Each structure stands twice: as C-alpha cells, then as structure tokens.
Simulated assay, not measured.
Amino acid sequence: MTKMIVVCTGDADTRFDRDYYANEHFKLAMSCWEQYGLQSAEAFFPYSATGEWKSIGVYTFASEQGVHDALKSPQTQRVMDDVKHFTDAKVVLRSLFAEF
C-alpha cells in the first residue's frame, strides 16, 4: 500500500471549500483513479495561527506503481480541472509514503 499526500497552502484570504473537497472532489478522484488502484481518500485540515497549510489529502493506492500510472493517465486532467471548484490555493507538495 502506498499513500500519496497532497498539501494545499495559502493564507487567511485563500478560498477553500472543505465540504466540496472531502465529498465531491474525492468522488471524482475515485472514479478517475480507482482503475489504477486508488482505494480511499481522506481529508485533514490542520489548524495553526501562523500556518500556511489549508488541507492535507491522503490518497491510498494499492501500489506505488498505481500512483504513477494514475498521475500519467488522461483522467488526471479531470481531477486537476476540478481544483478550481474548491480552492484557489496552490498545491505545493505531493509526496509518496509507503509502509515499511
């Protein structure tokens, strides 16, 4: 199992619709990437008076290769085009975490 972490950043003026992200965007990601092994998606919303992180999305795939295949797929454009519906934040970090 491999987890792809996606972090959105911004300041106090950055728009971020948590409900849309956790419900609608994740449904879209599942429909686009399930064939590549996406098993689940989770949303975390950190709080810090001075922090820039608006959200942390954890996408769990069956394998690391599945993450790479999903990101290279034509369906990824649909996922990326949907971002404007929930935020104007800049996605600044994508990381892979695998169990060891």
Rank of each mutant, 00 (worst) to 15 (best):
1 M>T: 04
2 T>N: 05
2 T>G: 05
2 T>E: 12
3 K>M: 07
4 M>W: 06
5 I>F: 12
6 V>K: 02
6 V>I: 13
6 V>H: 04
8 C>I: 15
9 T>A: 08
9 T>M: 08
9 T>E: 12
9 T>D: 14
10 G>N: 02
10 G>L: 04
12 A>N: 09
12 A>K: 12
13 D>K: 14
13 D>M: 11
14 T>H: 00
14 T>L: 03
14 T>N: 03
15 R>T: 08
17 D>K: 00
19 D>C: 13
20 Y>Q: 06
22 A>H: 11
23 N>S: 15
23 N>W: 14
23 N>I: 15
24 E>P: 06
26 F>L: 15
27 K>A: 08
27 K>D: 11
28 L>D: 02
28 L>W: 01
29 A>M: 13
31 S>V: 07
32 C>T: 02
32 C>E: 06
33 W>T: 06
34 E>A: 12
34 E>P: 00
35 Q>F: 02
36 Y>P: 00
37 G>K: 03
38 L>I: 03
39 Q>I: 10
39 Q>C: 10
40 S>E: 03
41 A>G: 04
42 E>Q: 12
42 E>G: 08
43 A>Q: 12
45 F>E: 13
45 F>D: 10
45 F>A: 07
46 P>F: 02
47 Y>Q: 10
47 Y>D: 12
47 Y>R: 14
47 Y>V: 15
48 S>V: 05
48 S>L: 06
48 S>P: 00
49 A>P: 04
49 A>E: 13
49 A>G: 09
49 A>T: 14
50 T>W: 11
50 T>A: 07
50 T>V: 15
53 W>Y: 13
54 K>D: 05
55 S>W: 05
55 S>Q: 10
55 S>I: 06
58 V>G: 11
59 Y>M: 14
60 T>R: 06
63 S>V: 05
63 S>H: 14
64 E>R: 08
65 Q>V: 09
65 Q>R: 10
67 V>R: 00
67 V>Q: 02
68 H>N: 07
70 A>H: 00
70 A>L: 04
71 L>A: 13
72 K>T: 15
73 S>D: 04
74 P>V: 06
76 T>A: 14
77 Q>S: 08
77 Q>G: 03
78 R>N: 13
78 R>K: 15
80 M>V: 15
81 D>E: 08
84 K>C: 10
84 K>R: 15
84 K>T: 07
85 H>F: 07
86 F>Q: 00
88 D>R: 02
89 A>V: 06
91 V>P: 01
92 V>Q: 03
92 V>T: 09
93 L>C: 07
94 R>K: 11
95 S>V: 12
96 L>I: 09
97 F>Y: 09
98 A>W: 15
100 F>A: 06
100 F>M: 05
